[in-house]
């Protein structure tokens, strides 16, 4: 039940990404290219996703707990720090270079296109490298 539902939710996400154009780097990059081949479609993706999520969350988060888990796991931090801002700035640079973000690229794997597999492989190496760096700096901090 949990797994079937999770699969179907992933499928809804994957279909949404596919028809929205977020799986297409040319379209994503053109959204940011106001000075060139501008395509404003991405604003409609964000708009549609935000309206549905904001309304749905309001309704759902009023319930005492989710259907299949004991509690809602929501991030509680509200402070802004350097890893958040620096990391997001770095993410944007990579997104601007490649045109794929993780949420766009994962469903795009289903198209079977080799470029998507190359991007996701590089993405995983980046995540592993960053996790290794994070645990290293955590250890140094503990020693100091």
């Amino acid at each position: 039940m949990r797994l079937v539902l999770s699969y179907l939710i992933g499928l809804v996400f994957g279909v949404g990404i596919s028809i929205s154009g977020m799986a297409n780097p040319a379209k994503v990059l053109n959204f940011f290219d106001v000075a060139g081949t501008w395509d404003p479609s991405l604003a409609f993706v964000m708009g549609g996703a935000l309206i549905v999520t904001a309304l749905g969350y309001r309704f759902i988060l009023r319930r005492p707990s989710p259907m299949l888990a004991t509690s809602f796991q929501l991030p509680t931090r509200r402070d802004l720090d350097m890893p958040l801002i620096g990391g997001s700035a770095v993410f944007g640079i990579g997104w601007g270079i490649a045109g794929f973000c993780p949420g766009g690229a994962l469903p795009a794997l289903g198209t079977g296109r080799s470029e998507v597999f190359i991007f996701v492989a590089a993405l995983l190496v980046g995540i592993i490298a960053a996790k290794a760096l994070q645990s290293m700096s955590l250890r140094t901090r503990k020693v100091a």
């Binding site: 539902l5 809804v12 409609f44 749905g56």
Partner: peptide, 23 residues
Amino acid sequence: QSLGGGALIGLAAVLLMGTMGRI
């Protein structure tokens, strides 16, 4: 298409929160 696709992305987010309680 983009608005519709975006709405489906939102629907998936709402369903995952409603069932698993996850972002």
